[in-house]
């Protein structure tokens, strides 16, 4: 009876793992693909031009926003917020940039994107480009953007993502979610190859980080700090053994 009880309990406990794993792994998403080359997708711009992303980036570094025109969620606030933040972003006065709004919905046509640009009153803004591409899946997988189609709502479940691409076509920075003008300023600086200190970097004064980030490989390795987290448990079990040995030797 108790064995059945224990088995049931273990199944109950394990059943929640799926829930835990199913949560959006925001974790290191913003760091994924940094310093990698964005897929050179051919674009059809609403002006009628045909150009690739790398060609566009070579003219001016890019802020790429991924949207779809039938979106009833985050796409509209993302564009409005970006438009507004670009007006107030600090330290970008002399910086070059273009904003490329690409649809990730294969149903969207150039006309749909043109309507979207008109809706935001951006159709005549020189440094805003609205485009579609026939290579969307390769483009979004190169920046780790993963929209999921939901049959119930007939909408994509997706992040609000801005990707910064420098003139050489490298991803320099990503921003997830609706971000303020300060973050947008850092993004613009990063695509202009200006150092943007978004995280406190390991320094000589910081000895015990939990993780050490290697910008060349883009990977984290456990740091000395992790040892400090394990230390109390290790020490207490050693103390337990030590006390027992001492009391045993005294009683002999």
């Amino acid at each position: 009876m108790l064995k059945y009880g224990l088995t049931t309990f273990l199944i109950f406990v394990c059943s929640f793992i799926e829930d835990a794993v199913a949560q959006p792994a925001v974790g290191w998403q913003e760091e994924a693909n940094i310093n990698e080359v964005i897929y050179n997708a051919p674009l059809q711009i609403i002006s009628g031009a045909h150009v690739s992303i790398h060609q566009l980036a070579a003219q001016n570094p890019l802020v790429v926003a991924f949207v779809f025109t039938r979106c009833s969620g985050i796409c509209t606030p993302l564009i409005i917020q970006l438009k507004e933040s670009l007006q107030f972003a600090p330290n970008i006065a002399n910086k070059k940039y273009n904003v490329l709004v690409v649809s990730f919905d294969p149903r969207d046509s150039v006309k749909d994107m043109e309507n979207m640009a008109t809706r935001f009153n951006l159709q005549h803004e020189g440094n805003w480009e609205f485009a579609v591409t026939d290579s969307i899946s390769r483009l979004i997988s190169s920046v780790n953007f993963n929209p999921v189609w939901d049959e119930k709502t007939l909408q994509f479940d997706h992040d609000a993502l801005l990707v910064g691409v420098n003139s050489q076509g490298f991803v320099t920075k990503k921003l997830l979610g609706l971000r303020n003008s300060k973050d947008i300023g850092l993004l613009i600086n990063s695509i202009n190859n200006v150092f943007s200190p978004t995280y406190r970097l390991p320094a000589q004064s910081n000895l015990f980080s939990c993780y050490n980030y290697n910008p060349k490989t883009g990977k984290n390795t456990p740091g000395l700090g992790m040892l400090f987290i394990a230390l109390p448990a290790i020490l207490s079990f050693l103390i337990l053994i030590f006390i027992r040995l001492v009391s045993k030797s005294k009683s002999v």
Binding site: A203, S205, N206, L207, F208, S209, C210, Y211, G223, G225, F228, I229
Partner: peptide, 11 residues
């Protein structure tokens, strides 16, 4: 000397 915020929160 400055601390690692994640380490301190864990501890």
């Amino acid at each position: 000397f400055v601390n690692d915020a994640l380490l301190i929160k864990n501890l």
